[in-house]
Amino acid sequence: MKEEIIIAGFGGQGVLSMGKILAYSGIMQDQEVSWMPSYGPEMRGGTANVTVILSDERISSPAINAFDTAVILNQQSLDKFENNVKPGGVLIYDPNGITRHPKRTDITIYRIAAAEEAARLKNAKTFNMIVLGAYLKVRPIVKMENVIAGLKKSLPERHHHMIPMNEEAITCGMNAVVEVK
């Protein structure tokens, strides 16, 4: 098994931490992982993206141009990465703020209204966990128990009381994701 993922959106949406939790979940089930951020003068409101690779074998390049799955959270990222999904791959996006929707017909496209769901949960901070839930529903490459273990590893201990809330958000994302026909 090898899954090459790009998660891209605005800085402040939790893109990098979602990638980190996913990578830690991979470690929890003995996989090789890499987490390669775009870094630089990025800040809240700017663009942020991270390439995460989970694999049963040694990972060659952590920097890649073609992805099995793209998780897209703003228009700029959709414009930038839609064409980099491998044929037969998956694109998951939040339609919030999107005016030009994905057009590819050789990939499977899913929508997750994560911003809307987070508002419904009355907790904007759960946004990235809702997105993670949607991803895991579509690509169940890591077991839920390993995601929770990954969450424990990537959150400082003082935030461990928030794990049940995150779990709830993941479940919410799993239920809310829909395939775009």
Binding site: K20, A23, I27, E32, V33, S34, W35, M36, P37, Y39, I59, P62, A63
Partner: peptide, 10 residues
């Protein structure tokens, strides 16, 4: 370089 310095691995 910045690539190995900034990326996370096991």
């Amino acid at each position: 370089d910045g690539m190995i310095g900034q990326m996370m691995e096991k």
